[in-house]
Design a binder for these strands. Structure first.
Length: 470
RNA sequence: GUAGAUAUAGCUCAGCUGGUUAGAGCGUCGGAUUGUGAUUCCGAAGGUCGUGGGUUCGAGCCCCAUUAUUUACCCCA
């Protein structure tokens, strides 16, 4: 006998967990639809040519690849793995061999499949196109806290418009979902790739731009010392690093930080790239104004953080990231604007903006903050007891009526001891037990016990359904 | 890919410097006037101590290997 197991980084979800997860999905779906986003689903498997090269070298390594069908060892004795793979290929290593034996891979995120969909359906879509998508994705990552190999993302994106109203609406949706889940203590961080570029320019343009962004993104995690150390190792001068922290350390509220960075960029001689100075700062100011006009009230939860960078390189405009405070958990949501997402699929110039919720992390946050209220083990509301064959049969019409009245109900399938049937109802959290035994049958009544209070009522059999539908 | 930790009953874990038949709680099953749960009492079942070697008179405990799990880093939801 083998010991059963599931693959690393995957989980089973029992009835109570599924119920909780459905609650999260429902809050997110309702919000997305309120904002006019329409659902989309794409295949679990994508062609690897669609996926590779979109997430950087690290991302490519994290793709789950699916072996082609067929018997690869069939021709082994002749030194041939498949008709496509030669001995030279084998010598060249996995980078050459893998694309020949694995043409498909598991979806790594929802944005790239969406871009592929937009490119493939460009002729039939009406732009601006808003879609949401809630599906699992797979990454061959090392699992750890808040990180799984199979997890759900809930994305909402709009493509075909440059309007900053979309950015503002992302903030509104983020806040609505988190408030709806009861996760009130959150921080939405916002920044702009243009601001990061201006910071790089303010430092005199020395060093590697990406190294800089990767390092400062960790500021709140490893602190100034950690960032300094990393930048020194990457060849940035100490004086440059001082200038960097002057810019990143701007204080004040959202508008004040924008003002101070504007002054800082001007002092550093950064060239203007916008009719109002700098594109990044100007757009961030516009997003703020649009939020005010939209009636957004939680500005204390919205933080302009010039150190926010985010990894995925396709972002070009505003970028977002959401953290739940007082929980040791990475970001639960993130996103941003990209100017050319579909370019790789032969459709250049389509800009868009979108964001994503990580359901599994939201779940973990809710759990560690003890914010789940319902722990229903079963949807069943009524358990009908089963005494003997006769009373069991007599219960079936009532069972059918209860179900027809939309009251989830079940008859205990065996004529076990009543004690056992009650224990079953209690263990599953079924609130009502309907006792329909020989005594009740003879009198034409049903005894109803409310388990929580222990209270019992006797009702004529014909009045049960109407009494319970109240 | 790098570094650390853990592996004992269905679950969560004890098990002293190596020493006879490996324990607890929870759960499961049975019973306490055979038509009443969650509380209480009694009882039972259930483990070749992850796997394979080694040291020793003797290994759950020490050593090596291996596999799995987990935490941190990289990166990310």
């Amino acid at each position: 006998m083998q010991k059963p197991s599931i693959p690393q980084g995957t989980r089973d979800f029992g009835p109570a967990q599924v119920a909780r997860r459905q609650h999260i999905f429902n809050v997110i779906r309702r919000t997305f639809e309120q904002f006019g986003y329409a659902p989309l689903e794409t295949p679990t498997l994508e062609n690897l040519s669609v996926l590779t090269g979109k997430y950087g070298d690290e991302g490519d390594q994290l793709l789950f690849k699916v072996l082609n069908s067929g018997n690869f060892l069939q021709n082994e004795r002749r030194g041939v793995i498949t008709p496509n793979v030669t001995a030279e290929d084998l010598d060249a290593g996995p980078k050459v061999v893998l694309p020949k034996i694995a043409e498909k891979g598991l979806r790594y995120d929802l944005t790239v499949p969406f871009a592929r969909y937009v490119a493939m359906n460009r002729g039939t879509l009406t732009f601006p196109f808003r879609r949401y998508q809630m599906q699992p994705v797979w990454r061959a990552d090392r699992p750890q806290r808040g990180r799984y190999r199979e997890f759900y993302q809930c994305d909402a994106d709009v493509v075909g418009t440059d309007s900053l109203l979309c950015e503002a609406e992302i903030v509104l949706m983020m806040a609505q979902v988190l408030n709806g889940l009861g996760l009130h203590d959150f921080t939405i961080k916002i920044n702009h790739r243009g601001v990061l570029r201006n910071i790089f320019q303010a430092l005199g343009g020395a060093g590697n731009e990406n190294d800089l962004f990767v390092a400062i993104d960790k500021l709140d995690k490893i602190g100034r010392e950690g960032v300094s150390k990393e930048l020194l190792e990457k060849g940035f001068a100490a004086s440059v690093i001082d200038t960097l922290f002057e810019l990143l350390g701007v204080e004040g509220d959202y508008a004040e930080k924008l003002q101070r960075l504007l002054a800082g960029f001007a002092t550093a001689g950064v060239e203007s790239d916008h009719d109002r100075g700098y594109r990044g700062l100007a757009e961030l100011a516009d997003v703020h104004d649009l939020l005010v006009a939209s009636g957004f009230r939680q500005f204390e939860r919205l933080e302009f953080d010039p150190a926010l960078a985010r990894g995925l390189s396709y972002y070009t405009g505003c970028i977002f990231e959401v953290k739940i405070n007082n929980v040791a958990m990475g970001s639960v949501s993130g996103g941003g604007r990209y100017d050319n997402l579909t370019g790789a699929f032969g459709l250049p110039g389509v800009s868009g903006v979108g964001f994503s919720f990580g359901v599994d992390r939201l779940y973990d946050c809710l759990e560690s903050l003890d914010l789940f209220t319902e722990t229903a083990e079963t949807p069943t509301r009524c358990l009908l007891t089963h005494f003997d064959k006769e009373s069991g049969l007599a219960a079936l019409p009532l069972l059918a009526q209860l179900r027809a009245a939309n009251i989830p109900s079940e008859l205990y399938p065996d004529a076990s001891k009543l004690q056992k049937q009650f224990k079953y109802a209690d263990a599953k959290g079924i609130p009502l037990v309907l006792i329909l035994g020989p005594e009740e049958l003879a009198a034409g009544v049903v005894k109803i016990k409310i388990l929580k209070t222990g209270e019992e009522k006797v009702l004529p059999i014909g009045e049960v359904v109407s009494a319970l539908t109240v």
